[in-house]
Design a binder for these strands. Structure first.
Length: 637
RNA sequence: GCCACUAUAGCUCAGCAGGCAGAGCGCGUCCUUGGUAAGGACGAGGUCACCGGUUCGAGCCCGGUUAGUGGCUCCA
């Protein structure tokens, strides 16, 4: 029987049925065939090259350049890792080993520890396996057969996995050399395709990601077809580390951490300038958008938190204290305080929406192991706001907030991802209310035409939310902005407004943040700009550098002129050489340096140097001041 | 919180076989008045994270604590 194979380049070829994809690839282009790792058929399934074609098929060959190809490649590397581990430590039990972004991992239940030295040995064994160029071969067994097979070799985790594969009568296994693993596949044709592998770290990981389960040892690694690609990857990782906000925070003297307050940041003067600039920008925008700013106390009676549901749903993250024998809690969120203000006077439907914004310092007892610079703290400032509105204002208000988020992130040139989080297990309120709220958020996203991912069960305990995620220098993503729709808190706090009919009605509430936390946002900003902050955020915008003492008087005059125009300028009066002063200003990533010597004094100019563009030559001060002012106002570099 | 690793001067890091604690940068004083990324000399600075143990003797070996790092779980 003949079958038709359609390739991505449009070619249609005829083959004998049972021709494998590998044969098709070789026939199409023998050179390219060496690059091909797997194939996608009929726009959905990714399969091995040994897959025999039985009917007319659309084929897309996958190489390492394709995301799916990378996945296959790294997944095969994970199998080789498992094989190496089994060779060296035969009693080790295998859990799972998928490909991930940038690499792969495999989880093991082993009696011995995988120290860095052990990783070396394992890596060496992997290289042997690669050199042997074992083909990956696929076999299928019924679930019962597979259960017997894996029970015999005491692979308890595999047995559990098979038991959970209830919707399929057969399971697939992949074998390379003496090693066989339960696996859906697909895989590379053979281990020899794995050009360069590297084991990067060991970490603990709970079986099935559940902290009640046993902690396994997870070995992380990465793999590339060519050693040069691996080198480049490792180099990029190093580069990323150089952008790490924790490192730059020290170098630029922005903030610090101390043993006396784990997870509690200390902002230095320079860091505070950055912080305050963000806040100033935030206030300007919010004022224009009809928000009113409030401030509520850090410590509030425990009764309040019982009323809000935090006691029930959020207690393990809260700090408690006693005042005059009464129980109080340090606020982990700002909403109850805001609601007390809303409730402190009567609201007419004509007043709504009421938008109360608060830069609220919240404290949350995060697990010690999760703390991470400014990104994950135990106290942070939320740029919070609570919007109280009529039910029919919900759509408009959500869109208003989304627009604001866009405006902010655009200002910084951030790419972001949007997620919609739905009702969690531990939640207040009925399914109907949750459905209604979730629907409202979806509608708003749809109206904005935004792509988003659904995060089932990840909502706040009082309502579903839209989250905005930004990426840090190592590609980890951090939640920043969030919009949470809440029908429940107004109920709990008996909030109302007086409607047209003179009766009490329940308002709807939106909780939202845009930066998320000012601290985390600063961390992301630092990494995003690699410490080269835009002019308007730079703690020092201009450094004035006189060459010799006799230029000091003029330099002071220049500095004063800059300061008069609200430009953050500093004068370096030290008796150091100009090269030295420039180097220091460069290291502090100060955007503009003004060098002043005999020529400048004589001509009434300054010599301009930009920290990224270098020497710009002499310019008169007034137009320069104007240019700088303009850049600050436009928030450009 | 869990798993693993780490902790030496303000910062980056050496240190050996268990035998008087080091370098560079930074800081201070002095000399140098220097034109676009480090001028020179001298000097101060340490409870080797903390507590305990082994030892004639511990920065080094062992146990614990604290903090940090990479993950897991959780989250702005």
């Amino acid at each position: 029987m003949k079958i038709k194979v359609t390739l991505t380049n449009g070619k249609v070829k005829e083959y004998q049925a049972d021709t494998t994809l590998a044969e098709v690839a070789r026939d199409e282009n023998p050179d390219l065939a060496r690059m091909v790792l797997a194939a996608q058929i009929n726009d959905n399934q990714v399969v091995d090259l040994s897959y025999p074609l039985e009917q007319d098929t659309k084929v897309r060959f996958l190489s390492f350049e394709d995301e799916e190809g990378k996945q296959v490649f790294r997944h095969s590397a994970a199998h080789v890792l498992a094989q190496a581990v089994k060779r060296l430590y035969p009693q080790t039990k295998l859990a799972i080993g998928p490909a991930i972004k940038d690499g792969f991992y495999y989880d093991f239940d082993a009696s011995q520890r995988f120290t860095p030295e052990e990783l070396e040995k394992i890596e060496q064994e992997m290289r042997n396996i690669i050199k042997n160029d074992f083909p990956f071969t696929r076999t299928e067994l019924t679930r019962e057969e597979a259960l017997v097979k894996f029970s015999e070799v005491k692979e308890d985790y595999k047995v559990e996995l098979i038991n959970n594969l209830t919707n399929t009568p057969v399971v697939s296994l992949y074998t390379q050399g003496e090693f066989t693993d339960l696996c859906a596949g697909p895989h590379l044709p053979s281990t020899g395709k794995l050009g360069a592998v590297k084991l990067t770290s060991v970490a603990g990981a709970y079986w099935r990601g559940d902290e009640r389960n046993k902690m396994l040892q997870r070995i992380y690694g990465t793999a590339f077809p060519l050693p040069a690609q691996l080198e480049e990857y490792l180099f990029r990782q190093e580069e990323a580390k150089r952008r790490d906000h924790r490192r730059l925070g020290v170098e630029l003297d922005l903030f610090s951490f101390h043993e006396e307050g784990p997870g509690f940041p200390f902002f230095h003067p320079a860091g505070m300038v950055l912080y305050n600039q963000l806040v100033q920008f935030w206030r300007e925008v919010h004022e224009k958008q009809g928000y009113q700013e409030i401030k509520t106390p850090l410590i509030l009676s425990q009764d309040l938190w019982e009323q809000s549901g935090h006691w029930e749903h959020y207690r393990e993250n809260m700090y408690f204290t006693k005042v005059d024998e009464k129980d109080f809690a340090v606020k982990p969120m700002n909403c109850p305080g805001s609601m007390l203000i809303y409730r402190s006077r009567l609201h007419s439907y004509r007043d709504l929406p009421v938008r109360l914004a608060e830069l609220g310092l919240v404290h949350r007892h995060e697990l010690s192991g999760v703390l991470h610079g400014l990104m994950r703290l135990r106290c942070f400032t939320q740029d919070d706001a609570h919007l109280y509105m009529l039910p029919d204002q919900v759509g408009e208000e959500i869109i208003g907030v989304i627009n604001m988020v866009e405006q902010f992130y655009q200002t910084f040139g951030f790419k972001y991802r949007v997620e919609l989080s739905t009702k969690p297990e531990k939640a207040m309120g009925s399914d109907e209310i949750w459905e209604m709220a979730t629907r409202a958020l979806q509608d708003a996203l749809q109206a904005k035409g935004m792509a988003y991912k659904v995060n089932a069960g990840d909502g706040a305990f009082y309502g579903p939310k839209i989250d905005f995620h930004l990426e840090d220098s190592l590609g980890r993503s951090w939640q920043c902005g969030t919009i949470q729709l809440d029908f429940l808190m107004p109920e709990k706090f008996d909030l109302f407004y007086v409607g047209e009919d003179g009766q009490k009605h329940r308002p709807v509430m939106i909780h939202r943040v845009i930066f998320g936390s000012i601290e985390r946002f600063i961390g992301i900003l630092i990494e995003h700009y690699a410490g080269n902050l835009p002019l308007w955020l730079s703690p020092v915008q201009v450094k004035v550098l006189p060459i010799a003492d006799r230029h000091l008087a003029y330099a002071k005059e220049v500095t004063a002129n800059l300061e008069k125009e609200q430009i953050r300028a500093e004068l370096d009066t030290r008796r150091e050489k100009i090269n030295y002063k420039i180097r220091e200003a460069q290291l502090f990533k100060i955007p503009y340096m003004l060098v002043i010597g005999d020529k400048e004094v004589a001509n009434n100019t300054v010599s301009l140097r930009h920290h990224l563009q270098g020497d710009q030559g002499p310019v008169p001060l007034p137009p320069l001041v104007q240019m700088i002012r303009q850049k600050i106002e436009n928030k450009t570099f």
